[in-house]
Simulated scan of single mutants.
Amino acid sequence: MSGNIVARRYARALFGLGVKKGDSQIESFGKDLAALSEVFAASPEVSAVFRNPIFSAEDKKAVVGKIMDKLEIQGAVRNFCLLLADKGRLDELPGISSVYAELLDEAQGVKRGVFVSAVKIAGKKQGEIIQQLEDQLKAKLVLDFEVDPDILGGVVLKVGDQVLDASLKAQLSILKETIRRGE
């Protein structure tokens, strides 16, 4: 699991609260955290305000409160963010969101990965690929499809910490090494 210790602790605490409230709340919390993280990513100034010790906790609460008002975030996530402001941890929110997403995926049996090909794959074919891989992995799979012409042909599949490199570039590299060793 990625993220620093602080982000993991806060994410686990919010996740535990979501578990007590039910599956729909777990997902709702995740969506709210993801929305807040997007705001942080889109506006580096916001993150800078939360990292800056010159601003008081009340100032930071006011800023995050306005952001949450615009995003219509209420309830436990709102209280959670206000707690982060009190503790001076609002700058950890993107990391908390990332760890929370990992916890949510794990709880739902979802695996995430990247499918890299040399050419763009059409939407219908993407669905077929995902279905075949889900059948093999016996798990729900969320894939990002990317195009990398440098692999020349074939595919590279990364799911979790596993990598399947069936690219032409990798095969040529193996052949080159074999020839170099004289086998």
Results as ranks from 00 to 15, higher is better:
G123T: 15
K140N: 10
F80K: 05
L143R: 14
V63E: 00
S167M: 05
R112L: 02
K158G: 02
V77F: 01
G153F: 06
I96D: 03
E128S: 13
S167A: 10
D135G: 15
R78F: 07
I67M: 00
D135N: 15
V114F: 01
K125I: 15
A166T: 05
A48D: 10
C81W: 02
G88R: 09
P53Q: 10
A107D: 02
F115V: 06
S47A: 14
S56V: 07
V116Y: 06
I54P: 05
K138H: 11
A62S: 15
P53C: 01
K60N: 08
D69M: 01
L133I: 10
Q136G: 14
A57N: 03
Q132M: 15
C81N: 08
D69I: 01
G123N: 14
Q136R: 15
I96H: 01
E102D: 08
E128G: 06
Q162W: 07
E134I: 13
S117I: 03
G109S: 06
D69S: 03
I129M: 08
R112S: 08
E72H: 02
D91A: 15
L84S: 03
L90E: 02
K87M: 05
I54K: 08
A122C: 05
K120A: 12
C81S: 09
I54W: 07
Q136W: 14
D59R: 04
A76L: 04
V147P: 04
E146L: 14
N52G: 03
I129K: 11
G65E: 02
D69C: 02
G127N: 10
I67R: 00
Q131D: 14
R89V: 05
G75L: 01
V147L: 06
D86W: 11
V49I: 12
L93V: 14
E92D: 09
L168D: 11
L104F: 03
K169Q: 10
Y100C: 06
D91T: 11
L157R: 10
P53A: 09
K120F: 08
F50I: 06
V119D: 12
A118I: 04
V77H: 00
V119T: 13
I96R: 05
G75K: 10
V99Y: 08
V99H: 04
Q162E: 07
K66C: 03
D150T: 12
Q136H: 11
V142D: 11
L84C: 03
V63R: 00
K60S: 09
E106H: 14
F55S: 06
D165Q: 14
K120N: 04
L172E: 11
I67Y: 00
A57G: 05
K70M: 00
A57K: 14
L83K: 04
V155L: 14
P149G: 09
R89A: 07
A101P: 02
R78N: 14
Q136Y: 13
G154N: 13
A57Y: 10
K66L: 14
D144K: 13
K61C: 02
V142A: 13
S98N: 08
D148Y: 11
G95A: 07
L90K: 04
I67S: 01
